[in-house]
């Protein structure tokens, strides 16, 4: 999965370029994010704007990513679409992640 990485103040923003987080791509997605968040110990936000579909494997990957952050850091998700919100709400994982309507637009590229 292609992911754009940028930093805005204390926040690392990962913008997903694909349209799905599903069983077919969950493992490579998790690995790609693992490399991007290592050595960063502040807030991490995933911009979900382009994601049209999330399944239970994709949800599991998001939980695994939050565990990678270690300690008490919660993974933040921005601009979740209808299906993503529905899956999060049904499984009550909407209370586990920090949800935002939109990601901050500022920030410098950290590729």
């Amino acid at each position: 999965m292609k992911i754009e990485r940028r930093i805005a103040d204390d926040l690392l923003i990962l913008t997903l370029q694909d349209t799905r987080i599903d069983a077919a791509g969950a493992v490579p997605f998790k690995e790609a994010v693992r490399q991007m968040v290592q050595d960063f110990d502040d807030r991490v936000m995933i911009d979900m704007t382009r994601i049209e579909f999330l399944d239970s494997s994709g949800l599991g990957a998001l939980v695994a990513i939050m565990k990678m952050l270690g300690g008490a850091r919660r993974l933040e998700l921005a601009n979740c679409g209808t299906i993503v919100r529905k899956v999060l709400t049904l499984t009550r994982m909407d209370s586990v992640f920090i949800l935002h309507d939109a990601a901050p637009t500022a920030g410098r590229s950290a590729a």
Partner: peptide
């Protein structure tokens, strides 16, 4: 966080 499930949602 460390004890959250990563599966069983399907």
């Amino acid at each position: 966080i460390d004890d959250l499930p990563e599966g069983g949602f399907g």
